[in-house]
């Protein structure tokens, strides 16, 4: 009578685990995301004077002293909850907001890191800025899903005598 009892609780656990992981992903993912957006806003204001341009030449009034390659990169992943929401979304089509916010965070972070490294090396601005996106292969055996997305920002740092 009481034989199958331990097995039963294990089955319950197995049934509940995916939901627990989803809830965990949702809760912690949300906290991490909003903290990241706050940090992005703060640092973007802080670094607004390091100008970034995609043109290959600096403005005419800059007297260039020195130039060199600078970069910033980040690998970022989506949380479990958003991954499921995006999967559902794919059934109906349309905007997948959860992925949009992920990519936005990663791009802003990569550009900020590029600015920070440019500043650390004494550059005042960046020209010829480019952004590259690469998808890293999944670690799971079936090859589905995404382990992470790398965003790389790079450009030519300019030290100018103004």
């Amino acid at each position: 009578m009481d034989g199958p009892e331990p097995f039963d609780s294990l089955a319950w656990l197995r049934l509940l685990l995916p939901f627990a992981l989803l809830a965990l992903g949702f809760a912690i993912g949300k906290v991490i995301e909003s903290a990241h957006f706050r940090s992005l806003r703060r640092r973007e204001i802080h670094w607004r004077r390091v100008q970034v341009s995609t043109l290959s030449l600096p403005p005419q009034d800059w007297r260039v002293v020195r130039a060199g390659l600078v970069d910033g990169s980040v690998v970022i992943s989506i949380d479990h909850w958003k991954r499921m929401v995006a999967g559902l979304r794919a059934l109906f089509g349309g905007r997948i907001r959860s992925y949009e916010s992920l990519l936005e965070r990663a791009r802003r972070e990569a550009v900020l890191r590029m600015k920070e490294s440019a500043h650390a090396r004494g550059f005042h601005g960046i020209v010829g800025a480019r952004l590259e996106t690469a998808r890293l292969a999944s670690t799971s055996r079936d090859g589905k899903g995404t382990a992470g997305i790398e965003i790389l920002a790079f450009g030519t740092g300019i030290e100018a005598a103004r």
Binding site: D79, A147, G148
Partner: peptide
């Protein structure tokens, strides 16, 4: 790093190990 990244994949956010790895490789 894979195990750490797998855990991080649950909650989302930056995978620092991979960022560093790719920076070194680049």
């Amino acid at each position: 790093r894979d195990i750490m990244a797998g855990l991080k994949n649950l909650v989302g956010g930056e995978l620092k190990g991979y960022t560093e790895l790719l920076q070194e490789a680049r």
